[in-house]
């Protein structure tokens, strides 16, 4: 049996909860003994996904957002899902600089940041049903060399 651990949180799609969401995931991942950089990467990615759910998925109306995290060996999987309006064209939405709200100063970098900071990002979405963003990151990649060395 592999070393696994899971957690799930559900919270209201209020912008106040963005900070809570990324800190919750960050603290769950500490058991992987991540670097400061890796924690920052995951926090940024979670923040982007949750912000998307709030402003695009639910268009600022208050419903529930669900985050599921899973640790398997040294891989962290984070799934952020909403049951909001969904994305018509996922490929287009994932283009850097693409935004449906340029007048609101949205940079259009949300998915680009998720892809830059995580190892993989998968988006499943159905218009009218909701969106699920599944992200993976291997934590502590380059560390084996010295952690396995005994004196």
């Amino acid at each position: 049996m592999k070393n696994t651990n899971e957690m799930e949180i559900r919270f209201d799609s209020r912008s106040e909860n963005e900070g809570f969401a990324r800190v919750a995931v960050a603290s769950f991942m500490t058991q992987l003994n991540p670097t400061v950089e890796e924690v920052a990467d995951v926090k940024t990615a979670v923040s982007e996904a949750v912000t998307n759910a709030i402003i695009h998925g639910y268009e600022n109306k208050v419903h529930k957002i669900c985050i599921r995290c899973r640790i398997s060996e040294n891989v962290l999987t984070v799934e952020v899902s909403d049951s909001g309006k969904g994305i018509e064209d996922v490929q287009q939405a994932m283009q850097p600089m693409f935004t449906t709200m340029p007048e609101q100063d949205r940079s259009g970098m949300g998915f680009a940041f998720m892809e830059a900071f995580m190892d993989s990002v998968e988006v499943e979405s159905e218009p009218g049903k909701g969106t699920r963003v599944k992200m993976k990151k291997t934590v502590g990649k380059g560390r084996e060399l010295w952690t396995t060395q005994s004196l």
Partner: peptide
């Protein structure tokens, strides 16, 4: 110590 793409939006705007 933390900024996401919303901050980039603020700067661009």
């Amino acid at each position: 110590d933390f900024m996401d793409s919303s901050g980039i939006g603020v700067i661009m705007g």
